[in-house]
């Protein structure tokens, strides 16, 4: 966390990253840089590899080949005598501390109260004293509009509320980069707005980098500095929201947007 970022060095760098599930190649040699504080939205049809990109960064999925660097350090590899060897759990943990993630299905801990959900990792992972962790958790929960629900259990909340807790749980750990994996896909339409508002608010207040996998084009336009359109495991087109959404070049992106904007 305290490492000094080298000037102009991207925060995250994907170098020729491929991922195969059995015979299915979901990523085919991806090159992608994410800069400090940059907000990048990943869009594309299902199966285009968007979710896999962030799951590999969260160390939930190991790349089949290629290198992912965080702050210049390989994530899935460790340098031993100048050669790259597979990383061990200790190495992964060291880098993982800079990364946070919000999941499509919230994945809150059902056996803990809302407060404990947001406190637990602060105390046990970051070693913050319990009192202070709770204070920070409550501040964070108030920010996402759930200050009154601290004693409730996740399953007593609506999907939108649960997702806001999940956001608080991740943000309170103060990662350098936050990953959002289709965070509104599992929600009823009327609950989508409140979650997106919370993310926009956080994006405005903090200088965290963000990678957002999303189908909400308006949201992407509002939050992202750059939109990356993926197709068949490769980047088909990328650029500013204006370029991508208003002046798409490739025919695939054009038809994707057409289908998308007409159905939503």
């Amino acid at each position: 966390m305290t490492k000094n970022p080298v000037q102009n060095q991207p925060l995250v760098k994907y170098e020729k990253v491929s991922k195969k599930f059995d015979d299915l190649e979901v990523l085919k040699g991806l090159d992608l840089d994410i800069n400090q504080g940059e907000r990048v939205a990943l869009i594309g049809p299902s199966g285009s590899g968007k979710t896999t990109i962030i799951r590999m960064l969260m160390t939930l999925e190991e790349p089949t080949s290629g290198i992912i660097k965080v702050d210049g350090t390989p994530l899935w590899h460790k340098e031993v005598n100048g050669k790259l060897a597979p990383a061990d759990e200790n190495h992964l943990r060291k880098i993982r501390g800079d990364i946070g993630m919000v999941f499509q299905q919230f994945n809150l801990f059902p056996h803990m109260t809302i407060l404990r959900n947001v406190t637990e990792a602060q105390v046990h992972v970051k070693g913050i004293p319990k009192d202070e962790a709770e204070k920070r958790a409550i501040t964070m929960l108030e920010k996402v509009g759930l200050g009154e629900k601290v004693d409730a259990y996740p399953l007593q909340l609506s999907g939108g509320q649960q997702q806001r807790v999940a956001i608080a749980r991740a943000v309170v750990m103060q990662p350098k980069i936050m990953l959002f994996d289709e965070v509104t896909s599992a929600l009823d339409p009327e609950l989508v707005g409140e979650v997106l508002e919370v993310i926009k608010e956080i994006a405005k207040e903090s200088d965290m980098a963000m990678i957002l996998v999303t189908h909400e084009m308006d949201f992407a336009r509002d939050v992202a500095d750059r939109i990356v359109f993926l197709h068949g495991g490769l980047i088909e087109e990328q650029g500013s929201p204006k370029e991508i959404l208003e002046n798409p070049q490739s025919s695939r992106l054009q038809s994707f947007l057409k289908r998308f904007l007409s159905t939503t």
């Binding site: 969260m58 160390t59 939930l60 759990e89 943990r93 993982r96 501390g97 990364i99 946070g100 993630m101 999941f103 299905q105 994945n107 809150l108 801990f109 637990e120 990792a121 046990h124 992972v125 749980r169 991740a170 750990m173």
Partner: peptide, 16 residues
């Protein structure tokens, strides 16, 4: 499995 994934995302150790 998603519970394990959530705790990995919070950087918990295996034991935690």
């Amino acid at each position: 499995k998603t519970q394990t994934e959530a705790s990995i995302a919070l950087n918990m150790t295996r034991w935690q």
